[in-house]
C-alpha cells in the first residue's frame, strides 16, 4: 500500500509517482530503474510503465524517465546509506534489504584476473519484492509425508513460477510442525539470501521456529556445515544442479537427513538434461517431485510424482 516501508526505499520522485498512480504494494512484484530509461514495474503479473502523472501508459515513450540522481538516491536508501556494508554482495550483482527484497544491480564492472573487484557507476537496479505466501504449501505437504517422515523432495519449476515461495513455506510448515508431522529441525543453505531474505544476518521471512539459516554461504559448503554443526533433520536448498553441489548432496542423503531442493525446469525430461539431476533421478534418490507451472496462475501445482515418476496428484489445467 502507498506509504508502507517499501515505498520509502525509492527516490522521492519515484515514490511520489507510485503513490499518485495508486500502486498497491501487495500486487507489486518488481521495480526496474534504469538511468535514462522509463520506469518499468511488474504489477499483477504484467509489465507496466507510468507517465509523469503516475498513470499507466501504453507507449513506453510517454513514460517517466529515471534520472541517474534517482538511481543514486534509491541506492542510498536501499543500502541504509552504507553501500560499503554490501561490498561482497554487490560483487555478486545483488543484495538483500529489510523485508527480504532482492536488489539486482548492474553498472561498470572492474575485474582483475577474471575476478570482479567491484561494480562502479551503478545505473541499473532491479528490485524484486519478496512475497511470502503463508500457507501456500499446505495443500502440497500431505503428499510429501510418508510414514511420518518428510520425503526427499525436488520442486521443479520454470523461473518465476513460485518454487522458492513454495519451498519457503514448506520449510516453515515442517519446522513449526503440522498435524501428523511434529516439528523438525530444518537447516537452510541460503546462498543467495532468497529463502530467508536475511538482512545483516537476520532472516526477514518466517522460516519457522526450528530453522537454522546459513546465509550467503555456497550451497555445497553450507549443506556440509549444517550437517556437521546443527544436526538438522531436514536440509533445504534452492536451485541445485551444479556438479559442485553433488558431493554435499550425497553426504546429506546418506546421513539420515531429508532434503528439500528446487531446480529450474519445466518438466522432468528437461531437468534430466542436467547430469547431476539425471544421476540422482536414475538412482531414485528423490521420493517426490513437485512440478509447478503458470496455469491457471503462477505457483500452481501441475503435478506431484512419486520416486517412480508416477503421478500421485494432478492439478487443475
Amino acid at each position: 500500500m502507498p506509504g508502507d516501508d517499501f515505498f520509502g526505499i525509492l527516490a522521492d520522485p519515484v515514490q511520489n509517482l507510485l503513490i499518485k498512480g495508486g500502486i498497491q504494494r501487495e500486487y507489486l512484484q518488481e521495480v526496474r530503474l534504469r538511468a535514462g530509461s522509463p520506469l518499468f514495474l511488474r504489477y499483477q503479473n504484467r509489465e507496466i510503465s507510468l507517465n509523469r502523472d503516475g498513470q499507466p501508459c501504453r507507449d513506453w515513450k510517454d513514460a517517466y524517465r529515471i534520472r541517474m540522481e534517482e538511481v543514486r538516491e534509491t541506492l542510498e536508501y536501499l543500502s541504509g546509506y552504507s553501500m560499503y556494508a554490501f561490498e561482497d554482495e554487490v560483487k555478486q550483482g545483488y543484495f538483500t534489504i529489510p523485508g527480504g527484497h532482492r536488489v539486482g544491480l548492474a553498472g561498470k564492472v572492474v575485474a582483475e584476473e577474471g575476478r570482479i573487484q567491484c561494480v562502479r557507476q551503478i545505473s541499473f537496479l532491479n528490485i524484486r519484492l519478496s512475497h511470502q505466501i503463508l500457507g501456500c504449501a499446505e495443500p502440497v505437504l500431505p503428499f510429501l509425508i510418508q510414514e511420518g517422515q518428510v520425503s526427499h523432495t525436488l520442486i521443479v519449476s520454470p523461473p518465476g513460477a513460485g518454487k522458492t515461495t513454495l519451498l519457503r513455506d514448506l520449510i516453515r510448515l515442517i519446522s513449526n510442525g503440522v498435524p501428523g508431522l511434529p516439528g523438525r529441525n530444518v537447516g537452510v543453505a541460503d546462498e543467495r539470501s532468497e529463502l530467508g531474505g536475511a538482512y545483516l544476518g537476520v532472516p526477514q521471512n518466517d522460516l519457522g521456529v526450528r530453522t537454522d539459516v546459513l546465509d550467503g554461504c555456497p550451497k555445497g559448503l553450507g549443506m556440509t556445515m549444517l550437517l556437521r554443526s546443527m544436526a538438522p533433520q531436514v536440509i533445504a536448498v534452492d536451485e541445485i544442479g551444479s556438479e559442485r553441489d553433488a558431493e554435499a548432496l550425497e553426504n546429506v542423503l546418506y546421513s539420515g537427513c531429508k532434503i528439500l531442493a528446487t531446480v529450474h525446469g519445466s518438466s522432468l525430461e528437461e531437468i534430466k538434461k542436467k547430469p547431476l539431476i539425471r544421476r540422482m533421478m536414475e538412482g531414485r534418490v528423490f521420493e517426490r517431485y513437485v512440478l509447478l507451472g503458470f496455469s491457471p496462475r503462477a505457483g500452481s501445482v501441475r503435478k506431484i510424482l512419486n520416486g517412480q515418476e508416477e503421478t500421485i496428484f494432478c492439478g487443475k489445467p
Binding site: 538511481v71 542510498e76 546509506y81 553501500m83 560499503y84 554487490v90 572492474v110 562502479r120 551503478i122
Partner: peptide, 10 residues
C-alpha cells in the same frame, strides 16, 4: 561518508 561508488567513497 556516504556514496554509491565504493572506490570513489574510499
Amino acid at each position: 561518508l556516504c556514496g554509491s561508488d565504493l572506490v570513489l567513497q574510499r
